[in-house]
Amino acid sequence: MTLTFTPSPEPIEHTTSRSFPILDILHPREHLRLIAVSGSLALGSAIVSRVVFNWVLWQAVALVLIVMAVPATIKWRSDARCFGRAAAVAGALVTLQGLHTVEHVTQWVQRHILHEPLRQANGLLSPANSEWIHFLWNWSVMIPVVYLMSKGMRGFWGWALFAWAFAHTLEHTYMFVRYIQVTRELHALGFDDVTAQGLPGIVGQGGWLDLSAGPKLQMICGFPGITTADRVDAHFTWNTGEILLAIPAVHIFLRTKVDAFRR
């Protein structure tokens, strides 16, 4: 099957409400057919790979993401032409962080509904290697957040998103470094088949704050879950918080940018 698509060279007038430009930027618009066909193709490929070729879940999910990267890239390039690069980056940020939140909702369901062990409640993609994926992901979020701030996404929500995303990224950086170090230690002990993934980070049960914090951090540690949440709950909170901050930050930013573009 050959997909033909010609991006519009000119900005497109929209019919959605101007009060919610975030809906404009997330709307597939003229790419609806491309996204729908690609989505169907991706899903079909994933099912075939699972059923016929016995791929594990994360491989099938990765296949879906790779297939969908093509229409997504086309759509975002189109957004860049329609609304400007910053608006396109904002749309991509909300879309991808939204998808990432789905990963953590899945983990939460695995843990609390399906009652899977903590170290096995890894979601859809993270079984590949949760530390690498979440480390790269969070830096991938941090960079566009900083970029968007440089383009004017400031104000309360912008700064709140920046602070939250930065803390979250620090958490994953700490976890990633420890993952590398512990993997090395395990290797020295003769274990190459024991994973060091899923260890606590800075916050949460068994985390650095829980076990190492001095009296100066008593106030921080007093917040519910800061030293008691397990990894699934902690990162469910991190990511839902991040998307909940990203939506108003991007919304307010886009209202300015899109309106300015239209003017």
């Binding site: 062990p117 170290r119 512990v182 002990l189 260890l199 650095w208 076990l211």
Partner: peptide, 20 residues
């Protein structure tokens, strides 16, 4: 959660996952 302690415990903890 020092590196040494975690590394010593991890092989055992991996066998206890089904109790979690």
């Amino acid at each position: 959660t020092s590196l040494e302690v975690i590394s010593e415990w991890l092989p055992l903890m991996a066998t206890m996952d089904d109790l979690d």
